[in-house]
């Protein structure tokens, strides 16, 4: 169960990073959510064989990591964790799509490999941007920003509760599963049978906890509405941040900056 335990610790670390005090941390969460959203749309909407046009987008994560003083290695490790899923999504492209579309010297590169690389680049960019958003803003603030931008309150509250109790539940399931492991003496325990009962117990316990939490809420006058207690300001720095980055993303989306730079360099040095 070390892996679950470590995952929780990592999540807590991500959460602590949001307590930093950089120019990026101080920005209103809505500005950061908006920019990340526009970034994601611009990256994802590229053509499936597009690869060169994606590279200039890396300027955003790099700039954010350095401006917000985030640990780059930690963020990269988090992104790497998701790699197997991304590979699973794209791995069949090279098998099915064998049309050579790029010739590097004598080596022909098929469309499948290009689209596979494109999927990898895109997921690295978008997942990285999401991690950077949470690490520089905090999950709670992101939820509140989404709500401020028009997401129904019910979803925001659900997300907040999910995040709050993920820590309690993973610890609980970690304990239960460790107890099972210790008594199965290195064997499989009773296999799927005991595992089913363990999961069932966790579900029931979660249910009971939910009831107690609801009771605690009612005891403090909860009537169904969450009241906001925090005011935030969307000022000049936020507007500047949103405008500058979105303008860059939209430019990069419609102009292949790598090619532009390439032709500029080759034009200068023929």
């Amino acid at each position: 169960m070390a892996s679950i335990h470590n995952a929780v610790l990592d999540l807590k670390r991500l959460d602590l990073l949001a307590n930093g005090n950089s120019s990026i941390h101080r920005l209103d969460a809505r500005a950061k959510v908006l920019v990340t959203l526009i970034f994601t749309i611009c990256v994802v909407s590229n053509d499936r064989y597009e690869l060169t046009a994606l590279f200039p987008f890396f300027i955003f994560p790099v700039a954010m990591i350095s401006l917000a003083n985030l640990p780059p290695l930690f963020i990269m490790k988090k992104i790497a964790l998701l790699c197997p899923f991304v590979v699973a999504v794209g791995i069949f492209n090279p098998v099915f799509d064998r049309v050579i579309i790029l010739q590097l010297g004598s080596i022909g590169i098929s469309g499948g490999w290009i689209s596979f690389a494109s999927i990898m680049a895109r997921s690295t960019l978008t997942v990285g941007a999401a991690f950077i958003l949470v690490a520089s803003t905090g999950f709670t603030a992101v939820c509140q920003a989404l709500e401020g931008l028009g997401m129904p309150k019910v979803f925001a509250v659900q997300l907040l509760f999910l995040y709050r109790y993920i820590f309690v539940l993973t610890e609980e399931s970690g304990r239960a599963s460790r107890a099972r492991e210790l008594r199965s003496c290195g064997k499989k325990g009773q296999g799927i049978h005991s595992f089913g009962s363990l999961v069932g117990h966790l579900l029931l316990r979660t249910w009971q906890r939910a009831e107690r939490i609801h009771m605690a809420m009612l005891a403090r006058g909860f009537t169904g509405a969450f009241h906001a207690s925090r005011q935030s300001r969307f000022g000049i720095p936020e507007i500047r941040f949103v405008l500058a980055w979105s303008a860059l993303f939209i430019f990069l989306r419609f102009q292949n900056a790598s090619q532009l730079l390439g032709s500029l360099v080759t034009g200068l040095f023929p």
């Binding site: 999950f139 509760f161 709050r164 109790y165 906890r209 107690r212």
Partner: peptide
């Protein structure tokens, strides 16, 4: 159990 009572983000 204070975990039942403390359900808000901060």
């Amino acid at each position: 159990d204070p975990d039942d009572q403390l359900f808000m983000p901060t």
